[in-house]
């Protein structure tokens, strides 16, 4: 698994895990099969799927993660980095 750089924090890893679990739940696949560097749309998530995933992620992280953030930060790795960076 390539997470992009060595600067991955513990928080970032936790967020990655939440994202992967939510995506795997929606696609009904094994979390191990989620390529963290693949674009969300290439993983098979359509807009309906992203709404469901963003709802679960928002609930687990305790804050709103909008659907558009999945388009602006297009992979698990990128979105986790973005969300961790925003976190105090």
């Amino acid at each position: 698994m390539n997470v992009g750089n060595a600067q991955v924090t513990g928080l970032e890893q936790q967020i990655q895990a939440v994202l992967v679990r939510a995506i795997a739940d929606d696609l009904e696949v094994d979390p191990q099969d989620i390529d963290q560097d693949a674009r969300f749309t290439d993983l098979g998530l359509d807009s309906a799927g992203l709404i469901a995933v963003s709802a679960q992620v928002s609930e687990e992280l305790g804050r709103e993660v909008g659907t558009e953030e999945f388009f602006e930060h297009v992979s698990v790795t990128e979105l986790a980095r973005h969300l961790a960076g925003r976190t105090p």
């Binding site: 696609l27 009904e28 696949v29 094994d30 098979g44």
Partner: peptide, 8 residues
């Protein structure tokens, strides 16, 4: 399209 319920 594969179904969203399929396995790996």
């Amino acid at each position: 399209e594969t179904g969203d319920y399929n396995s790996r």
